[in-house]
Amino acid sequence: MTHTQDTSLDSRGTARVESGRKSGLRPRKPLVRYGSWWWAIPGLLAVLSVHYVATSIGGAYAFTDFKGIGSFNWIGFDNFVKIVGDKKVFGSIGNTIFLAISFLIITNVVGLIFALALNRGIKSRYILRTLLFLPVVLSPLAVSYIFRFIFQVDGPFNSVLGAIGLESWQRPWLADPTWAIFTILAVMVWQNIGMAMIIYLAGLATVPIEIEEAAAIDGASAWQRFRHITFPLIQPAVAISTTLALTTGLRVFDQVQGMTRGGPFGATDTLSTVIYRETFANSHFGYGAALSLIFTVIVIAAAALQLFITRDRNAAAARKK
């Protein structure tokens, strides 16, 4: 008796033999198996216990008056009520949102410009890409300390301004209530442009050159080619880069702590630095945990909103059809 077999790959890449049901016989086991679902149980348990259970327990402290040592009392929502009346927290939320949005826009716009410039054509593009990406691999804290030195009153930056006749621009950059936050933003952007550029370069590599050439032959300008061909095709890269930039901007800590410690007088405080100070310097662990919970909700909501805005609408429409 002959028996036909239809061998195919399923979604896990497992070779399946589809013959049983059609012929009325009992389905056979796959010829090649790469593993069973239960093999993942130890890993899942580890992730759950180390990540989610530990974090949830930490979150429970938000409802206590724990001071970091000794016993504590359950105080319900008192910490959250205190947060609502805390001016420092609202100031830090404003700074966090300002830094996150400015960082997102500047890093992505400049990163995309660099990616377009270094995508094709320029001979030295590989060296330039390396140079631009180099700051990304440096420790943010180390970079912050270096820039703290650069922006000191008698530091190199003010010296350069003086040397080129811009004495009136000299100021204590990191202790100026107006300029300190812009100085921090500049350092954040400087260090992270390379990451955005690399993501956009990866996106640009997927854009077929033939389409651009065809558009050029049809008389499309450089802007029109970018607007109607390149940009729509790198939409996934835009989503990834902006999401990363937004979460990085919201979580900013190293640059602020390394350069100003939230000063002068709270002018550069972000939610992260307030959480750190309340928890570890002031030993208000319960209050710090409550702030962390609020911070987590803000980050999740912002990331979800941003992903919704930058979703690939064409792909979604195509799936509906």
Partner: peptide, 21 residues
């Protein structure tokens, strides 16, 4: 009573210098 008192004094002096406080 708390380290926060000293922290507020320290940051407050900087605020006096900058005119923020």
């Amino acid at each position: 009573e708390s380290g926060e008192v000293y922290n507020n004094l320290g940051t407050g002096v900087q605020g006096l210098f900058t005119g923020q406080a």
